[in-house]
């Protein structure tokens, strides 16, 4: 199976006094169609990893390929990824939801007519049709989160990078978001997803693989069952409990309770 995301010794040191090594050399392979959840406390390097893969941050060293394309081919890479990050601060608040999506659809190269159809499709999928004419500034955080997902899906990217998309959402809105994401993935076989979240319960049912980052280092990588067994933890019937156990054991009890 081909790799959706492949990294080889990818690392990042932010310049400064002193320099900050946000990501230590990281090699990983995410297969096409895989759904991977990245866990870790704040400051673990998750956002740096997402931003490098989204071509927003330049890695200090190492290599990465997305859908077989090296990161340096940034324009081509961006065509193949959909990114959700900080949904609250990434829209034109004076414009309505549809106008925002229309602008980004032009950026992705959707043709006239196709853009309207795709936007309608996504508004319906993400239960935003009724809100399409409302200025983004008047939407709730949960609605903006779903709108950010709609934007990320406009060009049907094969790879989704979702960096804490539920960060500013209340538990209900976060669950709604992840339920809708799950629905999209069920309808879109072959989509690869890398998602970071602290909403373990909501993401557990469709999490196929877990990456745990701590202080910029990858400290665990595997399917939830594998990680439970290798850490001598009991495998329960509840995917949410299993994920919580992994998080508690490998990241820390305080982090679990904090989120």
């Amino acid at each position: 199976m081909s790799a959706a995301i492949l990294t080889e010794d990818l690392y990042k040191t932010y310049p400064g006094q002193p320099p900050l090594q946000a990501l230590h050399p990281l090699s990983l392979r995410i297969q096409t169609g895989e759904i991977v959840v990245v866990l870790g406390p704040n400051g673990a390097g998750k956002t740096t990893l997402f931003k490098i893969l989204a071509t927003l941050v330049q890695p200090t060293g190492g290599e990465a390929w997305l859908a077989g394309l090296p990161l340096r081919e940034s324009i081509a890479v961006r065509r193949r990824i959909g990114m959700v990050s900080e949904p609250d601060r990434s829209f034109f608040w004076r414009l309505n939801a549809r106008q925002n999506l229309q602008f980004f659809a032009s950026g992705y190269g959707l043709r006239p007519g196709d853009d309207v159809r795709r936007i309608n499709e996504l508004l319906e999928l993400l239960e935003l049709t009724e809100l399409a004419g409302k200025p983004v500034g008047q939407l709730s955080s949960g609605q903006r989160g779903r709108l950010a997902l709609a934007r990320a899906l406009l060009h049907r990217p094969p790879i989704l990078l979702l960096d804490e998309p539920t960060r500013s959402l209340d538990p209900t809105a976060a669950t709604d978001f992840l339920t809708l994401l799950r629905r999209y993935l069920a309808e879109t076989p072959g989509a690869s997803v890398m998602l970071s979240t602290h909403r373990l319960g909501a993401v557990a049912p469709f999490c196929q693989r877990v990456l745990i980052l701590r202080q910029g280092r990858l400290c665990a990588d595997g399917a939830p069952d594998e990680l439970l067994r290798s850490n001598n933890l009991p495998v329960t019937d509840s995917a949410a409990d299993n994920l919580a156990q992994i998080y508690e054991a490998l990241v820390g009890r305080e982090a679990v309770h904090a989120h």
């Binding site: 859908a67 065509r79 193949r80 034109f92 004076r94 414009l95 106008q99 229309q102 602008f103 032009s106 950026g107 992705y108 190269g109 959707l110 006239p112 060009h155 049907r156 990217p157 094969p158």
Partner: peptide, 24 residues
């Protein structure tokens, strides 16, 4: 791959940006 057929048209993007800022 669905994204392969897409190519951003510079005039369309410029017009979309113009329309965005005009609306704002």
């Amino acid at each position: 791959m669905p994204t392969d057929g897409l190519k951003t048209s510079i005039p369309r993007l410029l017009f979309a940006t113009f329309r965005r800022d005009f609306s704002i």
